[in-house]
Nucleic acid binder design. Structure first.
Length: 625
DNA sequence: TCCGGAAAAT
DNA sequence: ATTTTCCGGA
C-alpha cells in the first residue's frame, strides 16, 4: 500500500495546520511533535483511512514501525511525543538544491546548538542573492504555509463507507469548514487563540485556493491544488493573498519551473514533495545545523550543489586538524565567507584539471562547479537515464562573483570522507556517522572518472565508501530522482549572480560495485574497512544530530541488530531524565518558527522553522479510501 | 504508556 | 510494503 497515504505524511499534514494544533503540534525541537489528543488523531487517521476502528493504540503501533525505518523516533520520557527524522526525509530527497546561494536566512530554528559554536557561524555565505532577496520572507506571513497539493483526479473527497465522513479537512485543507472540526476542536474557534479566529475567517479558503492555483500555473497542471495552509496573517494582514503566501514563489519569478508533477516528483512512490525553494532554505538550515552539531560534513557529500565555504586549504593536508581554520572568516570578497567550525577536509581542487576545465567547460557538471557529481540511483534516475558522469568533483570554479566555491566531494572521494570522520570528528559517534552517511548517500555510485580524478589529485586512497547499502532504507528514503531538467532553471533564477553559470546536474549512473562499497563503519573508526559486513551490522543507526544532544534518551538503534552496544547506550540514556516540559514558562522561548501564527499561539511551540517550511510544502495525493 | 511479535488485511 | 489488529510484556 505505498500508494495510499502513509501515516507519517498524514501526521505531517496535521502538524502543519494550525487547525490541529490542539490535537497535534510541534513541540520540543527539531522535529518533535506531541500528540495532544491521541484519540482525536487516531480518529482523524481512521477517518482518512476509512478505518473507523482506529485508535491510538493501533496508530501508535504504526508509528512504532517507523522506528526501525527511522522515519520517527520516540522521544522518551515524554508522553505521546515523537520525533521526525527530518533530515532523512528532506535531504535525501532534495540533494539537488543549491544551498550555497541562499542566504543567511537560515538561522531560525536550527536546533539548539549544543556548543554554541554555531553562533558566529553562518553556513550559507552571504551572497548577492541574499541581498537581493531578503530573507525576511521567512518571517513573512505567508511564507511557510503555502503548499501545493496534488490531488488525484478524484482524490478530493474520499468517502468512507462508514459514516465517519471526516476525511477531509486535511485533504481539502482549503475547503470550507471542516466538518468534524466542530466536534472538538478548535473549539474556541480556531485553535490558536480563539481570538482572531482561524485563518479561515481571514482568508477565504476558496479564494486563496484559486489564487494559488493560478500562481502555480494551475491551469497547466490541473492536478495541482495549492492551497494556503496557514493563516499567518502577517503584519498588516497583507499576507493573506496568494503572493505573500509563498515567499518562495514571490521570490521566484518563475516558480513555474518547478511544477510538481507526478513524474517529476522526487519522491517516487510517495506523493510527497517539497517546494524547492523551501527545500533550499531548509537545507541551508540543515546545513547550519550540521555545522552546529559538529556533524560530519559528509552529509554534504551527497549534495553536490552545496558549496561549502572553503577553509583555506591549499594543499591536501590530511590530518589537518581543525584548529587553524577556525577563524578567518571573511565575508564578502572573493574569499569564502566562512570557516567552518568544524574540521573537515575539503577536497582539494584538482589543480591541473581545474584549469583545464574552466577553459573548456565542456559538460556541464564539472564545470559548473555545482553540477552534481553524484547521482542517486532511484527509480527515477534510472528512468531518466543514465548516466552521465559528472565530473567530479571538485572542480571548482569561480563564480562570477569570483568566489571560489568548493564543492565537497561526493562519495567518490572516500578519502576525504574518511578523513573527516576519523580525524576530525572525534566526537561523532561512529554509528551516527554511519547514519549520516547512509542517510545522505543512498545509492551512489562512482564513476570511473572519479577514480582517476582522485588519483590525479594524489588522493588516491582506498576508496570505498560508496557503500551501497541502502537496501535497508525504505522507499521513502530512496534516493531522490535526479532533478528534472526543468528544475534547474530554478536555481538559475534564484541565483543569477553566482550560479547562473552552473550547469545542470548530471546524472551519472554507475552500477554499484560491491567491491567498492565500503560498509559503514561499524564501530571502529580507525578500523580498516572491511569489505563485507554482515547485514545486521550494517544496519543503520537511527539517529543523528540532535539525538546526541538530547542525550540519548533515545535508543540509538535497533536493538535487534546490535544488541549489546545499543542496550548499553540505551540504558545510559534512560538514566537521564527529561526535564523539558511544556513550555509555558520556559524561557527557551520556543521559537515557533518565524511564522507568526496569528498573534501567538496559546501554546508556545518550539518548532523548527525549517521543518515547518518543509512540511508546509509537502503535497500528498491520493486520499481515497 | 510504550514496545514489538505475529498474523491478517489492504 | 505498510498498516491494522491483537496482545503479552516491561
Amino acid at each position: 500500500g505505498s500508494r495510499q497515504i502513509q501515516l507519517w505524511h498524514f501526521i505531517l499534514e496535521l502538524l502543519r495546520k494550525e487547525e490541529y494544533h490542539d490535537v497535534i503540534a510541534w513541540q520540543g525541537d527539531y522535529g518533535e511533535f506531541v500528540i495532544k489528543d491521541p484519540d482525536e488523531v487516531a480518529r482523524l487517521w481512521g477517518a482518512r483511512k476509512c478505518k473507523p476502528q482506529m485508535n491510538y493504540d493501533k496508530l501508535s503501533r504504526a508509528l512504532r514501525y517507523y522506528y526501525n525505518k527511522r522515519i520517527l523516533h520516540k522521544t522518551k520520557g515524554k508522553r505521546f511525543t515523537y520525533k521526525f527524522n527530518f533530515n532523512k526525509l528532506v535531504l535525501v530527497n532534495y540533494p539537488f538544491i543549491d544551498m550555497g546561494s541562499t542566504g543567511s536566512s537560515v538561522p531560525q530554528s536550527a536546533p539548539p546548538v549544543p556548543t554554541g559554536a554555531g553562533t558566529h557561524f553562518r553556513f550559507p555565505p552571504s551572497t548577492p542573492s541574499e541581498v537581493l532577496s531578503p530573507n525576511d520572507d521567512l518571517r513573512s506571513p505567508g511564507g511557510m504555509f503555502s503548499s501545493v497539493v496534488r490531488r488525484m483526479g478524484r482524490g478530493s473527497v474520499s468517502d468512507c463507507s462508514d459514516g465517519t465522513s471526516v476525511n477531509s479537512e486535511i485533504e481539502e485543507g482549503n475547503i470550507g469548514a471542516g466538518e468534524e472540526r466542530g466536534d472538538r476542536g478548535i473549539s474556541g474557534g480556531g485553535g490558536p487563540g480563539g481570538g482572531g479566529g482561524g485563518y479561515r475567517g481571514i482568508i477565504h479558503p476558496r479564494l486563496s485556493h484559486e489564487t494559488l492555483f493560478r500562481m502555480y500555473g494551475g491551469p497547466g497542471n490541473p492536478s495541482l491544488s495549492p492551497f494556503p495552509v496557514s493563516p499567518l496573517p502577517g503584519p498588516g494582514g497583507a499576507g493573506l493573498l496568494a503572493p505573500p503566501l509563498s515567499p518562495a514563489l514571490s521570490m521566484t519569478p518563475s516558480h513555474l519551473p518547478y511544477t510538481p508533477s507526478p513524474t517529476l516528483s522526487p519522491m517516487l512512490g510517495s506523493h510527497f514533495s517539497f517546494n524547492p525553494e523551501d527545500m533550499k532554505r531548509y537545507l541551508q538550515a540543515h546545513t547550519q545545523s550540521v555545522y552546529n552539531y559538529g556533524l560530519s560534513p559528509r552529509a554534504f557529500l551527497q549534495y553536490p550543489n552545496i558549496v561549502i565555504p572553503q577553509p583555506h586549504r591549499p594543499t591536501a593536508d590530511k590530518a589537518g586538524l581543525t584548529g587553524e581554520r577556525g577563524e578567518r572568516a571573511e565575508r564578502a570578497g572573493p574569499e569564502p565567507p566562512h570557516m567552518s567550525p568544524f574540521k573537515f577536509k575539503l577536497q582539494p581542487p584538482p589543480l591541473g584539471r581545474k584549469q583545464r576545465d574552466s577553459s573548456g567547460s565542456g559538460s556541464m557538471s564539472s564545470t559548473s562547479g555545482l553540477g552534481s557529481s553524484l547521482s542517486f540511483s532511484s527509480d527515477l534516475s534510472s528512468a531518466s537515464g543514465s548516466g552521465v558522469i559528472s565530473a567530479s568533483s571538485s572542480t571548482q570554479s569561480l563564480n562570477s562573483a569570483g568566489l571560489p566555491k568548493i564543492k565537497v566531494e561526493p562519495i567518490s572521494d572516500i578519502e576525504s570522507e574518511e578523513e573527516v570522520e576519523v580525524t576530525d570528528i572525534s566526537e561523532e559517534d561512529p554509528d551516527e556517522r554511519d547514519e549520516e552517511f547512509e542517510l545522505f548517500s543512498p545509492h551512489l555510485s562512482r564513476a570511473p572518472e572519479h577514480r582517476h580524478h582522485h588519483f590525479a589529485n594524489g588522493t588516491a586512497a582506498p576508496q570505498h565508501q560508496s557503500h551501497a547499502e541502502d537496501d535497508l532504507d525504505e522507499e521513502v528514503f530512496k534516493a531522490p530522482a535526479p532533478p528534472p531538467p526543468g528544475l534547474m532553471p530554478f536555481y538559475a533564477s534564484q541565483h543569477t549572480h553566482s550560479n547562473a553559470h552552473r550547469g545542470l546536474p548530471i546524472l551519472k549512473s554507475e552500477p554499484i560495485d560491491a567491491g567498492d562499497t565500503l560498509p559503514p563503519q561499524t564501530g571502529s573508526a580507525g578500523a580498516p574497512q572491511t569489505k563485507c559486513i554482515p547485514l545486521k551490522l550494517r544496519f543503520k543507526r537511527r539517529w543523528s544530530e540532535d539525538q546526541r544532544m538530547e542525550a540519548a534518551q533515545e535508543e540509538s538503534d535497533d536493538k535487534k541488530v546490535r544488541p549489546e552496544e545499543e542496550r548499553e547506550r540505551e540504558r545510559q540514556s534512560n538514566g537521564r531524565m527529561e526535564i523539558e516540559e511544556d513550555g509555558t514558562g520556559s524561557g527557551d522561548g520556543d521559537s515557533p518558527p518565524p511564522l507568526a501564527y496569528e498573534g501567538s499561539l496559546p501554546t508556545p511551540l518550539k518548532v523548527s522553522a525549517e521543518l515547518h517550511r518543509a512540511t508546509a510544502q509537502l503535497s500528498l495525493e491520493n486520499k481515497d479510501c
